[in-house]
Design a protein around this nucleic acid. Structure first.
Length: 169
DNA sequence: AGCAAGATCGGT
DNA sequence: CCGATCTTGCTG
């Protein structure tokens, strides 16, 4: 067990605090006994049922259930039948939120992130607070955090589409 | 039961 | 710009 692993206190905060705080942090992935490390470089926040870009805007379903759990669990889902999206649930139970990991080190794009970390359905609901195969550790301090609107959510309407909830280095 | 769309990416 | 490829949620 690593001293540097981020605990539940870190993840059980509002997604708009956790998302930018994740930049520069380290993702540790254990696969076949081999440890790999990646620095988080880009994230997006999805916040609550009122956020029309958030999958929880359609309420509590089998798919969104984990977002209603405590922060630190993983919300993963398959998009376009090909790419696994990796999200970390944040906040307290009953307040659906999650951070989409869009970039790692030199890896750009959430589809590539899922691919390089070998993410699949078995990670749904897993907690990075206790998992033995994926967790987050403290990393480097980020000099400047850049902010922009989220990508690929044209369906969410102008208001939510314009929220500056994407953070990157 | 059937169907349309999707928090993407890589190749024309 | 288009196809890949399959799960999900909505409709009937």
């Amino acid at each position: 067990m690593s001293r540097d692993r981020l605990n539940s206190t870190f993840f059980e905060r509002d997604v708009l605090e956790v998302a930018p705080d994740l930049l520069g942090k380290t993702v540790i992935r254990m696969l076949d006994g081999v440890r790999s490390e990646w620095m988080i470089s880009e994230v997006e926040a999805y916040r609550g049922e009122e956020d029309l870009a958030c999958h929880a805007s359609r309420g509590r379903t089998k798919r969104t259930e984990v977002m209603y759990q405590e922060g630190g669990r993983l919300y993963v889902y398959l998009i376009y039948g090909i790419y696994w999206m990796l999200n970390i649930v944040t906040g307290k139970p009953e307040y659906p939120q999650a951070v989409l990991i869009r970039g790692l080190s030199e890896i750009r794009g959430p589809g590539k992130v899922g691919r390089v970390l070998h993410i699949d359905k078995s990670f749904y609901g897993e907690s990075v607070v206790i998992s033995e195969r994926i967790w987050i550790e403290k990393g480097i301090s980020v000099p400047e955090i850049k902010i922009a609107d989220r990508i690929g959510i044209d369906y969410a309407g102008e208001y939510w589409k314009n929220m500056k909830w994407r953070f990157f280095i």
